[in-house]
Amino acid sequence: MKIEFSTKDNYVIAKISEAITLYNAEQTKNDLEQSVERNEKKNLVIDLKETPYLDSSGIVALHKLQKTLEAKDLILYLIQINASILAALKLSGLNVQFNILENYEQLPG
């Protein structure tokens, strides 16, 4: 999985430039969880601008990740989502469960 990690202020930023599918969803979730653990007390921003596709396994993995972060009083933000991924989230009904932002300027703080 191609994930580029960085930190800024109170955020771990993960830029994913590969599809999240049945074949890599669980590993992607684990990699994202580990990045948050290494950067204690930082919220997670997943930049999906370069992510071409997200299947149902990817959606489930992101939802599980969100629940894990919420249990730690942390927030997951999905940012710069392309139209096909946003459509998949809407189709699943989970778009209202995620903190979806159009750009980095919308991040709190």
Rank of each mutant, 00 (worst) to 15 (best):
Q34W: 01
Q34A: 11
S35Y: 09
V36A: 04
V36T: 13
E37D: 06
R38H: 06
N39H: 14
N39M: 04
N39Q: 05
N39G: 01
E40A: 12
E40S: 15
E40W: 07
K41W: 00
K42Y: 07
K42I: 03
K42A: 02
N43P: 08
N43K: 12
L44I: 02
L44F: 02
L44K: 06
V45H: 12
V45M: 10
V45Q: 11
I46V: 15
I46S: 01
I46C: 13
I46L: 07
D47A: 08
D47G: 09
L48I: 03
L48D: 02
K49Q: 14
K49L: 06
T51H: 09
T51L: 00
P52H: 05
P52F: 07
Y53D: 10
Y53G: 00
L54C: 08
L54E: 02
S56L: 12
S57Y: 14
S57M: 12
G58D: 04
G58L: 04
G58W: 03
I59Y: 09
I59N: 01
I59L: 06
I59T: 04
I59F: 05
I59S: 02
V60E: 04
A61Q: 08
A61D: 10
L62W: 02
L62K: 08
L62C: 07
L62E: 02
H63E: 00
H63T: 02
H63Y: 12
L65F: 06
Q66N: 15
K67N: 14
K67L: 14
K67G: 01
T68V: 15
T68D: 11
T68S: 14
T68L: 13
T68R: 11
L69M: 12
L69Q: 09
L69N: 12
E70C: 01
E70I: 09
A71G: 10
K72A: 13
K72T: 01
K72L: 14
D73S: 14
D73P: 00
L74T: 08
L74P: 10
L74A: 06
L74S: 08
I75S: 11
I75C: 01
L76F: 06
Y77C: 03
L78W: 05
L78M: 07
I79A: 06
I79R: 13
I79D: 05
I79T: 13
Q80K: 15
Q80E: 09
